[in-house]
Design a binder for these strands. Structure first.
Lengths: 106, 106
DNA sequence: AGTATATAAAACCATTTGGTTTCATGTCAA
DNA sequence: TTGACATGAAACCAAATGGTTTTATATACT
């Protein structure tokens, strides 16, 4: 269980639309599992599994409070998304090439 | 087979590390399938399937030229990635909240 | 014409994914 | 202490994913 365990990465974690929605919910405020579940047309167990994946990717963390488990967002890993995105769209030759070549076709 | 078919979306397309690498390759210049394949430890057929997924997500397109099929990058759909990212990290309350609350803990 | 090359298409396979149901456990409240 | 509530854990399942091998077809080269 090292710091680098990370069975699921960010890219995989956000591949599922339900998980993306969960992240949006948690961006507002932290929530217990049952609260989160109430926003989706599926079982609590299914949501719990999604939360497991998000936890693996270190995008959320849950703490037990009484009989509830409360999840909160950890947005940092999303910066990897940004880095990926910028390889293609930020001050990169590829973008220029793309734009130029597309202009030619018109 | 409408224009809106789009069986695979961008998030799903970039979930696989091989496909992310393919995109990086194509950011440099357009390439035929066999050329792309030579960069990976798997069969041409496997790469062709990855290219199919990327095509579904409209991240690449292929044109037949002689006996080769040449693929090129279409980076536009990646903006959806950016929009997603910015929901969490760009001038949003959630970020402020996150930072503030993290400060408190230290 | 015949051979090598580049891709396409299909069948197949193991593993992962995204869901379910069922049962067990811990906690709160009356 | 009894019952309701919130979660955990396990078994199960169908479909999707990521790969393979095999066979076919079109193009290029000599």
């Amino acid at each position: 269980m090292s710091q680098t365990a990370q069975k699921h990465d960010v890219f995989q974690a956000i591949a599922d639309p339900t998980r993306r929605e969960v992240l949006k919910l948690l961006a507002e405020k932290e929530l217990p599992i049952s609260e989160i579940t109430s926003h989706f047309p599926m079982s609590r167990t299914a949501i719990a599994k999604h939360l497991k994946v998000l936890t693996d990717a270190e995008l959320v963390s849950g703490r037990k409070q009484g009989r509830e488990k409360i999840y909160r967002l950890h947005p940092e890993p999303l910066t990897e998304l940004r880095r990926f995105y910028e390889q293609f769209w930020s001050n990169k030759l590829s973008v220029l090439k793309y734009v130029v070549e597309n202009d030619k076709e018109k």
